[in-house]
Design a protein around this nucleic acid. Sequence first.
DNA 1: CGTGTAAGGAATTCTGACACG
DNA 2: CGTGTAAGGAATTCTGACACG
Lengths: 76, 76
Amino acid sequence: MMTKKKVIQIGIVSELTGLTERQIRYYEDRKLIFPDRSKGGVRKYSFEDIQTIMDIHTKLTDGFHTVELRRMLAGS
Amino acid sequence: MMTKKKVIQIGIVSELTGLTERQIRYYEDRKLIFPDRSKGGVRKYSFEDIQTIMDIHTKLTDGFHTVELRRMLAGS
DNA sequence: CGTGTAAGGAATTCTGACACG
DNA sequence: CGTGTAAGGAATTCTGACACG
């Protein structure tokens, strides 16, 4: 469904989540999110990705590390 | 709801609708769609806008003019 | 009228790196 | 480890205009 369509760029994801672009890109580096890319290389996120990003940040605030989150996300 | 969140840029709207950016901007010029703008002036569309844009193009193909479409859209 | 295009500038995003702790 | 930042380049978007019919 539509919530999985990756059509939102990082600037808006940053606004919607309140996180910095740096944080969002880092979560991808840690294999926690997988945005699409335009032909030019620009990242495209879905509303579902945005939800995941917010969950990730919450978990990090709770003290978890990205490696642990990767396992948690795998089992959902 | 989410379908009204204006978070999609014109390039993606163009891909999703198959229309050119020129056409999409023209529909705005004709007061048929009302995208938001980023601080820098970049247009942001919602999924609802995308649907409207496709409807507009269909109507234009059917022979209607933008002025008539403005009235039609007003009554919906 | 609705759309194509070339033009120049501005906003946005990208990567790799150094920094901190 | 997770995040901030300055750096330079590349991709994307913007506006106003000329063109066609």
